[in-house]
Design a protein around this nucleic acid. Structure first.
Lengths: 196, 196
DNA sequence: GTCTATAGATAGATAGAC
DNA sequence: GTCTATCTATCTATAGAC
């Protein structure tokens, strides 16, 4: 495999990621990738013989991006006051959510992607545990799964909803959760905890 | 519009719902509906001239079902002890989640469905408020949105994940949530609250 | 008003030229 | 090994028969 070929593979995957961001899984087609990369349609088949191959390659890249997003999010959080605003902002990034939903959908249909998706979930869980530790909240499994679920749920709901103040509403829900976690986690209700 | 025509419309919508349950949005095609109903493909176009018409009709029916599921769930809950097991069970119904995800995806692309989706969310929110009241938990907006997002998040994660004990894990997260809500909600930590 | 046959668009994959 | 032209499958929509 030459250097040029490897470049083209990256090009194809990059175009595929952009399509997932803009249109979700149904947008990931050979003709659309061909148009964006300047390659011919049948050329995509050459580098990725079957649709499953293409999907797996793009999914791998998408998962890396998702994990980088969440890792960056956790890294940038220094105090408990920032956490809800930062997560709420990410739940409102529809391009990011479309990738998440596309991966989810692909995993539901393609066993190959399903296995990859496990890695994404495990990575998410690890990062969230790191976040909770940072905030001084117990990182027991149930707490981690709660934060994971609310992140996914808020993202998905926001994608399909055009309600006003969507981000503010997500932020309020996140504040409610983290307030509860702080109170319940160390059994010492903080008298001055901010109320949404 | 004759009675027979109305029957066929219902048949078509019914077949469409089954396809959403089994394959999600990409499964909703005229040929597949035709096969299941015994009608010809072009017949589907006759009753629903464009794909958007068909999608809107099926979405309407799907939303009714989703609301009925959640209303039934809330109705059947008598005590706080049941709530986590019941919700966890619903989050593991993949056919139900596929409809939810399909609606979400359709709403992201089709303005017509997007509007309908608002009704689903409003209905969800109303039912969850009713549930929280029933349980003696404050039904303030943030709490309702919190439970809503957790429900959606757990459902979506479970759909694409083949982890062992998925339901048990969802149940543990829900138990943690409702324990926190009960404690934080009425400011009176119940000493004997069960731990997951 | 109801239905059939056919057209038109778009997808993924193959055979074979260079 | 790389690329082009072509083929088959699948989906939606239309024109027109009954």
């Amino acid at each position: 495999m030459t250097v040029a070929a490897e470049d083209r593979r990256k090009q194809i995957i990059g175009a595929g990621l952009d399509l997932l961001r803009e249109e979700g899984l149904p947008g990931l087609t050979q003709p659309k990738i061909a148009k964006r990369t300047g390659l011919r349609q049948s050329h995509i088949t050459y580098y990725f013989p079957t649709r499953t191959d293409l999907l797996a390659a793009v999914s791998r890249a998408a998962i890396d991006i998702q994990l980088a997003v969440v890792a960056g999010m956790v890294d940038s959080i220094k105090t408990g006051r920032q956490v809800t605003a930062l997560i709420a902002e990410v739940t409102a990034r529809h391009d990011n959510t479309r990738i998440l939903v596309a991966l989810n959908q692909a995993a539901d249909r393609e066993p190959a992607v399903r296995e990859l998706f496990q890695a994404l979930n495990d990575g998410f869980v690890g990062e969230i545990a790191r976040l909770l530790s940072k905030l001084g909240v117990s990182d027991e499994a149930a707490n981690v799964d709660l934060v994971h679920a609310i992140f996914v749920g808020l993202s998905v709901i926001d994608l399909a909803t055009s309600r006003k103040r969507g981000v503010a509403r997500s932020k309020a829900a996140l504040e409610a959760l983290f307030r509860l976690l702080a109170v319940g986690g160390d059994q010492a209700p903080a008298a001055g905890s901010q109320r949404g």
